[in-house]
């Protein structure tokens, strides 16, 4: 039986939030896993030292890291995981989630390393394996923590029972939360040299790939992953509360935060070539978007 709302509280055009099934549920599940992976692992994807370490670790070290990571991911899958099905916390389910979390880490790191131009067709095969294997570690851990980070009703706390705010208030909250989240995550990366290095080496194709990846990740975290607040978010009304518009608007806010931070830290100046300004902003825009998406869900 549905809970009764107190008198005077009305949810305008609220859609009934039904649990997805089949492929839709798998899409939500893996969006949650990738969301957790990027939230946890993206600062390390932007760290030069981890790129370098990846080139000289021997196979024994890489294998040991993967085995230790798998053990950790199994334990995390038991206490958190990223699936929301009733069968979780059985050993078989934990084992499956552990394997899937490793795969999410590997695929996620491969996609971001390609988009950042850290891997390309000219690189030897062993470099591809080293880079991906090393970056799989933090991303897998993040994937296995998907529920603990932001799951509905878990981790940081679900606040779906709150009354949906007005359109204007929802917009202001979204912009503020995006800016806060973008600032929080991007500030870990903005002062480092990696942003300038990646931007200077990025081709127009890489920049386009980063823009597309940022938009897809931002959309997936907020609207596909069934993280906390999804019911409230879907109940919100107003011109900016449509997924595509909100994702695009939030990306623009994240880019503005990224650019502002780079100017404030002296990493960019107004006289710099426009290509550099755009490239640095787009490069930092990816972590800013991930942080901004998380910020919108938490606030």
């Amino acid at each position: 039986m549905a809970p009764r709302l107190p008198d005077g509280i009305r949810i305008a055009r609220a859609r009934e939030v039904t649990k997805p099934v089949g492929w839709a549920r798998e899409l939500d599940t893996f969006a949650r896993a990738f969301g957790g992976a990027f939230l946890f692992g993206i600062p390390l994807l932007y760290t030069q030292e981890t790129w370098n370490i990846g080139t000289y670790l021997d196979a024994g070290q890489l294998m040991t890291m993967l085995v230790v990571t798998f053990a950790a991911v199994l334990a995390l899958a038991h206490v958190s995981g990223f699936r929301s099905d009733a069968g979780k916390h059985r050993f078989a389910s934990d084992l499956e989630q552990g394997i899937e979390a490793l795969a999410v880490g590997a695929v996620g790191s491969l996609v971001v390393l390609l988009a950042l131009g850290r891997l390309g067709p000219g690189d030897p095969p062993d470099q591809w394996i080293r880079f991906v294997a090393l970056q799989t570690v933090p991303l897998s851990v993040g994937a296995a923590l998907g529920n603990a980070f932001l799951a509905e009703g878990g981790g940081l706390g679900g606040n779906d029972q709150k009354r949906p705010p007005s359109a204007a208030r929802a917009l202001a909250t979204d912009v503020g939360a995006t800016a806060f989240g973008a600032f929080f995550l991007a500030f870990n990366i903005a002062p480092t040299e990696e942003v300038q290095l990646l931007a200077s080496e990025a081709s127009p194709g890489h920049l386009v790939a980063l823009i597309v990846l940022s938009l897809v990740i931002g959309y997936a975290i907020v609207f596909e992953a069934e993280f906390l607040g999804i019911g409230r978010r879907r109940a919100q009304t107003g011109p900016f509360q449509r997924p595509i518009i909100e994702t695009t608007l939030s990306y623009c806010v994240s880019l503005a935060v990224a650019a502002g931070m780079l100017f404030l830290l002296g990493r960019m100046e107004l006289g710099d070539p426009i290509r550099d300004l755009v490239a640095q902003t787009v490069v930092l825009g990816l972590p800013a978007t991930v942080g901004g998406a998380a910020g919108r869900l938490v606030v």
Binding site: G22, D58, M63, V104, V107, P125, I129
Partner: peptide, 26 residues
């Protein structure tokens, strides 16, 4: 369910490729 089975098989394939890759590095 079938989707769950497919994603598990794909994930297993990715992990096996990763492990195979590390063995290749060695």
């Amino acid at each position: 369910e079938l989707p769950e089975l497919v994603t598990l098989i794909l994930s297993l394939a990715v992990v096996l490729v990763l492990i195979g890759g590390v063995v290749y590095v060695q």
